[in-house]
């Protein structure tokens, strides 16, 4: 069985990465199992700490993550791929690699760029970090 980790963020790049993963799955005779993961940035600012409980913050992460996961899951389901949804919170690159290890995936397939041109230019790309840290092969889709 081929196990794939598909990190998504709702951007066009991650959409194209899904397309690629579907095409890739079609070429193999193995059963393909996909883990679809989206990572929410933790909100650590002081006013949020003062006014928002851990509980509502979790709900917020879950809702925001679900918004991103649903279209991706629908797309994979339409292609007949079995997929498990995951929502992580933390540093995106690190969380992706942690999941890859925990779920023992064979491959990570993701977009080369995330959302937001400015954020990407300023903080460097998540993809770069994943490539750097990942113990398994990473496919970056442009």
């Amino acid at each position: 069985m081929l196990t794939l980790l598909l990190p998504v963020d709702g951007s066009e790049y991650s959409d194209r990465a899904l397309d690629y993963a579907i095409a890739r799955a079609a070429t193999t005779r193995d059963t393909v199992h996909a883990h679809v993961l989206t990572v929410q940035a933790p909100i650590v600012t002081v006013n949020v700490k003062l006014f928002v409980s851990q509980d509502s913050l979790q709900t917020y992460y879950r809702e925001e993550g679900t918004k991103i996961l649903e279209p991706a899951l629908a797309k994979l389901a339409a292609a007949g791929l079995s997929a498990e949804p995951h929502i992580g919170v933390g540093d995106a690159g690190k969380v992706v690699v942690d999941y890859a290890v925990e779920k023992a995936v064979d491959e990570i397939i993701m977009g080369s760029h995330g959302r937001g041109v400015l954020a990407g230019a300023l903080v460097g790309s998540v993809a770069q970090k994943v490539v750097h840290l990942s113990p398994v092969p990473v496919v970056l889709v442009k």
Binding site: Y61, T66, L69, L73, G88, V89, D98
Partner: peptide, 20 residues
């Protein structure tokens, strides 16, 4: 939220039937 690998995805997300 900051502990490693807490999975927030839950049943409220429609999973395809019988994930392998």
């Amino acid at each position: 939220a900051h502990a490693p690998l807490v999975d927030l995805a839950s049943q409220d997300i429609a999973t395809p039937a019988e994930p392998t």
